[in-house]
Amino acid sequence: MSFLSDPYIVFFVRWLHVLSGIMWIGLLWYFNFVQTPGMPKIPDEQKPAITKVIAPSALFWFRWSALSTIIWGLIQAWQLHYIQSALTLGFLTQSAHDMRIGFGMWMGLIMAFNVWFIIWPNQKKTLGIVQATPEEKARAGRAGFLASRINTMLSIPMLYAMVGASHMA
């Protein structure tokens, strides 16, 4: 217990959380700002370079960095004794800090849920990793696209809440 609450260990867990989070949100923004808008401009015969090589690799790092971010973040909140207060949005302790970080945590948890249970299962169909009819592929593409866009939208207030909890004057 004393080892886990050692200030250096607390810092080290925060570093792992931010490191994983940069990879996760960096790849989320790559999908939304670069890959998805770029796909219609790529000639059909060159599209497999993205769908067979780049996207599966990007999705691998995307979903595992999402899980890593959540795990280190939850460990951090537990180490700093605000996990329960933050997940109940600060109402238990009347804490603005815990409400702010709690909003960020819930947005991050919703985003990670979207990654693992909506985006990834649908991407497996659109990329041909699992068998699907053309109609199923079209529906999966739409669902994955919207979940990814929702995550991009949530990443803006999530980061504001996470950084703001400790660094807002």
Partner: peptide, 30 residues
């Protein structure tokens, strides 16, 4: 009206609106 999440601009504007709402909630709750 089309879904704002259809475009990147709509997505970013919605994200900023949620940011402002969350900030106001935190500022004025306690």
């Amino acid at each position: 009206m089309s879904n704002p999440l259809q475009t990147l601009q709509g997505t970013i504007i919605l994200g900023i609106v949620i940011t402002v709402v969350v900030d106001l909630i935190v500022r004025y709750t306690f």
